[in-house]
Design a protein around this nucleic acid. Structure first.
Lengths: 188, 188
DNA sequence: TGCATATGAATGAACG
DNA sequence: CGTTCATTCATATGCA
């Protein structure tokens, strides 16, 4: 089903111990966090940059304990699973081989197969996000640089901190929790 | 939470398939292999040369199926992830509560840092390893090779074809499986 | 209760 | 080397 309609039971204890559970096991997003993440994803964000991850993390930290790695993993997983889902579906669709015998022995339940074909269709990945107006004119430049910078300018990078966009005017200091997507996107 | 200390589970059916899994998919280090690799890493080894890779691989093959490329990738990944882990620590301070001054941390995100995953403290990188006396006399050659080696494994492969690095004349062509770290290091 | 599933986390492999 | 992708591991969770 599209995205978790499951309302993670609100474990109230998101304060001290871990926010994810009683014993600080693994992070478990709160509904607010999940909504924001999902919104961002639906808006086209797939592979946030480091700064984006940081900002998202910071923003989400208001709603509960979270680390940037959680945001990182979330996007990685979400993207991967969307891809995987699509892939399986297509295979199942055009190939459609039902090898009954093949499944002879127990297959490991660990392997996730995908079953749901339904999906509230996502927007195609927006190639050039316009979500980040501040960076807009620089973003493409940065993007291009990102991949090749490391070859020759490895040492340089430190200096060429291209990110000269500090325009989170409303980011953080004392922010309400903006509900609207628009507002959320703005802090990036 | 340190980390799960997952003893790579039962996939280990090291018999038929491939030693790494039922389907011989990708390599999965056995605990012994992992320990040796980790030891070497902790001892300061970061970017093994081609022959070192060969020797390590040979050594590890006793404990299970392994190819040299696995060793190559392992070090690449381990090094990269250690770095990104460390890099992240600097900015992922507690941001549970917003600082009023957002610019407090300025650190140039080289490209994409990720996060911190805590882990047992690593030894500092030993600048000049003395662990590998055998190669000492051909230091320069090794140095030259080194830059090529770490580009891509393909290049690494190419390298192995054209290079005359069969220089483990007296260095453990066939060996027992030494357990102690000292012994392990010696075969390099 | 026990399995199926959803998903956080980890890591092998590989790309640019 | 930094980044990204694919697959797997490990849990949490939902349901019958």
């Amino acid at each position: 089903m599209s995205f978790p309609l499951k309302v993670r039971s609100v474990r109230g204890n998101n304060g001290g111990g871990g926010g994810t559970g009683t014993k600080c096991g693994r992070w478990n997003p709160t509904v607010e966090q999940l909504k924001i993440l999902t919104d961002l994803f639906r808006a086209g964000l797939r592979t946030p940059t480091t700064d984006q991850i940081q900002k998202i993390s910071t923003e989400l930290s208001f709603y509960g304990k979270i680390e940037s790695k959680n945001v990182f993993y979330w996007f990685q997983n979400h993207k991967a699973r969307e891809r995987q889902k699509r892939r399986k579906i297509s295979i199942d669709f055009d190939h459609h081989h039902q090898e009954n015998d093949y499944i002879s022995h127990h297959r490991q339940p660990s392997t996730r197969d995908v079953f749901e074909i339904n999906e509230d269709e996502e927007e195609r990945v927006i190639e050039t996000l316009q979500l980040f107006p501040v960076n807009s004119f620089q973003e493409s430049k940065v993007d291009k640089m990102r991949s090749r910078v490391n070859n020759q300018y490895r040492e340089y990078i430190r200096e060429t901190n291209t990110t000269t966009f500090l325009s989170y005017s409303s980011c953080g200091a004392e922010m309400e929790h903006p509900s609207p997507l628009e507002l959320r996107l703005s802090f990036l």
